[in-house]
Write a protein that binds this DNA or RNA. Sequence first.
DNA 1: CATAGTTTTGACCATATGGTCAGGAAACCC
DNA 2: GGGTTTCCTGACCATATGGTCAAAACTATG
Lengths: 209, 209
Amino acid sequence: MARAESTKGQTRIQREKTEQILEAALEVFSKYGFRGSTIDQIAGQSGLSKPNILYYFDGKEAIHAVLLGRLLDTWLEPLEHMSDSDTPIDEICAYVKRKLEMARDFPRESRLFANEILQGAPRILSELQGPLKTLTDEKTSLIQSWVDAGKIAPVAPYHLLFSIWATTQHYADFDVQVHAVLGDCKEDCFETAQAHLDHMFRATLRPET
Amino acid sequence: MARAESTKGQTRIQREKTEQILEAALEVFSKYGFRGSTIDQIAGQSGLSKPNILYYFDGKEAIHAVLLGRLLDTWLEPLEHMSDSDTPIDEICAYVKRKLEMARDFPRESRLFANEILQGAPRILSELQGPLKTLTDEKTSLIQSWVDAGKIAPVAPYHLLFSIWATTQHYADFDVQVHAVLGDCKEDCFETAQAHLDHMFRATLRPET
DNA sequence: CATAGTTTTGACCATATGGTCAGGAAACCC
DNA sequence: GGGTTTCCTGACCATATGGTCAAAACTATG
């Protein structure tokens, strides 16, 4: 009997196959959403048979749950890194840069998340109201303290975060639209985006002197 | 035989029922995506029977197609309104405001669009590469001319548009996340957002003197 | 109200999909 | 090599879902 949860006491095969399935599932779920994806698709993508997949996971939901579970940690990590600093504008812009790099390097994760939220976050609403809210509350306080100290312009901290999330993840989530409009540009696109966002948030945060 | 396409030569009943179905379908599709929605759900939402819905539309795809078709016009209209002006910053900020109001007043339309793009825009890619690209090319030229004339700061026009789309639609598409983080605020949320975005884009566009 | 046309429905069909299971194939251990 | 455990599969099942159809119900009109 497999159905491993933690990475404890797993055989080599269990670890490999589990990973293989999750990799394929990420590919599929991020492309078609939860309901739009089938176990057969995941089977095809991973090169395993459907029953074999169900040998390692308790069902479609379970695979999705594992992916979402891992995701939130990864997703929140850059924000956790943002901490007090003498140069808060640099600190925030570093966060923006990091977030944009994640959109470039992990577009599937971004889309998986976007799909979930778009459809009302039925499976991770509690995570949003828990860990996510806690962390954002903490960081908005930090931002507010910078505002109060006159180190950055008086912005609405929550909405600043929303703007950062929206603008960076846009390049992953709306990738098709971006490329339809831009023609094609590949990596160039992210460099230009990085410059643009850096300009935008620096301008937004620069205190009036 | 019904299956009306244009609004020409339709009976009252045909017009009413067609509208009723589209309204219900928008509700359902925007909430669950195309594959996640069933004709039965649309039937339930509209109070009609499934066969009755299929009497008016050639199938699930057809309903979705009509919704998407209508959508793009509505969606592009605010951008079309942006035209040359002595005060380009005001012009752009008016566009931002308009776009945010649409996110507030038509969140279902926004999510329908987002769902479609997220999943690779299989049904409207050509629309993106056609009308959308044409319009954005036109408007980025306009923005570029403002840059060249020194009326606004030197921003990358395409990325400016992306930022506007991303930040405004975020309030519709990621509504669940916004409210999870913010607790609750209702209309207040949009007012604060409006102020924030206005500040942000004015700062971004203000030419260095 | 009779008739022609339109609208609506219950019953039905074909396929897709999530999931199960008994038994066969590999891998592991002695 | 033999036995035990783990891994894998073909065949199968139940349900959901998109879609059809003949006939009933309704509407409009002479």
